[in-house]
């Protein structure tokens, strides 16, 4: 419009078209547009690895907006580095049942499900050092498990050694994974499930029941002992107390009797005849009223005993 006002519109229009045809306008625009396409965004939960001409030039690009050379010069790989990755090995349908079976040191078969958790520690190594990192981690854990289980008895595995096995598997698998240098760290290994195969699980339950029985029998015996011994101890204490009581009684009675005798004997020493007569008569006072008496003459040589018989 402005140019039209200047009165030379055809010349201007042709010039622009020529320049476009020459590429002097479109080429810079294309170049700028191309360079702009190198802008990329890394989300908050991710990190990026930038590869230029096939070579890693930046292995840890943080979250945010960045620029690099566009394709095909450079390529950007985004990774969720903070995410914990989880692999479940065995019993999960993908893995046929006998694949999750392991042999123990005492030649028993156990079904074991293992959960492996790992995280990316080196994004560039994770991307470019191994073809299938999950398979590497899974095999390392499985190999470690096979070895750990082969060195333990089935009863220990099912009861006390579970945690120890877990730690052993983790240590072994970790060493293997470190050796692979595939950019991951093992965070943990969990024996998710460990059980005898279905065909023999009943027999294992019987053992558990038998162990319970054994414990119960022992507990019953202990309760018997706990009943018997204190009762005996009580009876013993009672006997002791009774003996002590007898002892005290006998000794004190003796002391009392002796004191009394001494008293009367003193009296007797002062007046033997009178005391003796008094004691004799006092006794007769006490004794004779209760009894059946027959008094006969002064010469009792012939007494008809019929006569003295009680009515």
């Amino acid at each position: 419009m402005v140019l039209a006002d200047l009165g030379e519109p055809p010349v201007v229009r042709r010039t622009i078209r020529d320049r476009v045809r020459d590429g002097r306008v479109i080429a810079p625009i294309a170049v700028i547009a191309y360079l702009c396409s190198g802008v990329y965004v890394v989300p908050a939960d991710q990190q990026a690895v930038v590869v230029r001409w096939g070579k890693v030039v930046d292995s840890r690009v943080p979250a945010g907006v960045h620029w690099t050379w566009p394709s095909p010069i450079a390529r950007v790989y985004r990774l969720r580095v903070r995410e914990t990755r989880r692999l479940t090995l065995g019993l999960d349908g993908v893995d046929p049942l006998n694949r999750s079976q392991f042999l123990t040191a005492d030649r028993n078969v156990l079904n074991i499900r293992l959960v492996v958790q790992f995280a990316i520690s080196d994004p560039a190594a994770y991307l470019f050092r191994a073809q299938d990192v999950n398979a590497l981690v899974a095999n390392a854990a499985r190999g470690a498990l096979a070895q750990a289980v082969a060195a333990r008895h089935v009863d220990d595995l099912l009861t006390t050694e579970k945690v120890a096995v877990q730690e052993r598997v983790q240590a072994l698998a970790e060493a293997t994974v470190v050796r692979y240098e595939c950019g991951v760290t093992l965070l943990g290994v969990v024996l998710d499930s460990i059980a005898p195969p279905d065909d023999v699980v009943e027999a294992f339950r019987h053992v558990a029941a038998a162990r319970e029985d054994g414990d119960r029998i022992v507990r019953e015996a202990e309760s018997y002992a706990n009943g018997v011994v204190p009762v005996a101890r009580g009876a013993a204490a009672q006997r002791g107390e009774e003996a002590l009581a007898y002892n005290t009684q006998v000794v004190n009675t003796a002391a009392g009797d002796a004191a009394r005798f001494s008293g009367i004997a003193d009296e007797y020493a002062k007046a033997p005849r009178e005391t003796a007569t008094r004691l004799y008569l006092e006794t007769m006072d006490e004794v004779l009223p209760k009894i059946d008496k027959t008094i006969v003459g002064a010469d009792p040589k012939a007494v008809d005993l019929q006569f003295v018989k009680k009515p």
Binding site: I291, D292, T294, I295, V296, G297, P300
Partner: peptide, 10 residues
């Protein structure tokens, strides 16, 4: 005691 019978000489 009560069951006792005694013959006493005069």
């Amino acid at each position: 005691n009560e069951k006792t019978s005694i013959i006493l000489s005069g």
